[in-house]
Simulated assay, not measured.
Amino acid sequence: MTMLRLARDQDAAFITEVWTRAENAMFLPPPDPGEVVEHIVLGHAFLWTAPDRPLGFATINLWDPGNDGISVIAMDRPGNGAGREFLSALVDHLFADPGTNRVGLDTAADNHRAMAVFARLGFVAEGMFRECWRRPDGLWVDCPHFSILRREWLARKG
């Protein structure tokens, strides 16, 4: 059985290793020094776990009251559908706070797998952050932004 839980100090190595993998460098800016530990200390880092191992992680930003953002989400072994289940559980968790009205996130414009997951979960494309970060190869990346509102999420959940 998989579950969502807050990341702990001992999870920092897993989060850092997945976040900084070469295959993720195309879609995720690298963490700043100390960023992983800071997310854990603030209670802004989550793990998606199986009984025997972590499957993925996410970090969140609390932009404004009622407006949460998922800053990073990555899976240990992408492509098996676990990411959609993880994102759904994370959004459920964020909307469990009655003050949260909106959850937003973005990705690299060529991360088609992520955008398909966002669409399947009901996220709406809001616009494009043009050339929002530079990849290790020096190319600038556009980042489409998506969000879902509490009422939309609850309507989908039935």
Rank of each mutant, 00 (worst) to 15 (best):
A96V: 00
A58Q: 00
E152P: 01
N24Y: 11
F27T: 00
G122W: 07
H39Y: 15
V117Q: 00
G43M: 06
M128C: 04
V18Q: 08
R8N: 12
C132F: 07
F57Q: 05
R130Q: 01
D68H: 09
G158E: 09
R5N: 13
T107K: 05
V141Q: 14
A50C: 03
L62P: 04
N101E: 09
L42T: 08
W48L: 10
V37C: 12
V18A: 01
D68Q: 11
T59E: 10
N24P: 06
P54W: 00
R151I: 08
V18G: 00
S71G: 15
H39A: 13
W153N: 08
T16S: 14
T16M: 03
D68F: 06
T20Q: 14
G34Q: 04
G104R: 11
T100R: 13
L139C: 07
F46P: 02
Q10V: 13
A50I: 01
F118Y: 15
A22R: 15
G34F: 10
F95W: 10
D97C: 13
W153R: 05
A114L: 06
D106L: 06
C132G: 07
F14N: 07
A22W: 07
N80C: 07
W63S: 13
D11G: 05
K157I: 06
F57E: 04
A25D: 09
L105A: 02
I15H: 05
H93F: 15
S147F: 12
H44F: 12
R130K: 07
M3I: 03
L6V: 04
W140I: 08
W153L: 03
S147Y: 12
D110K: 02
A125V: 02
A109S: 14
D68N: 12
W48Q: 06
A50Q: 11
F14V: 09
L94I: 03
F118N: 01
L149V: 12
G104K: 10
H44R: 15
L62Y: 05
H44Q: 13
A25W: 04
P30N: 05
V37A: 14
T2F: 14
F95A: 03
F118G: 00
E126A: 13
V41Q: 15
T100S: 13
G56H: 06
T16Y: 03
R150Q: 15
F27W: 13
V91E: 01
M115A: 02
P136Q: 08
F146R: 07
P78V: 05
L154Q: 15
A96P: 01
R5Y: 12
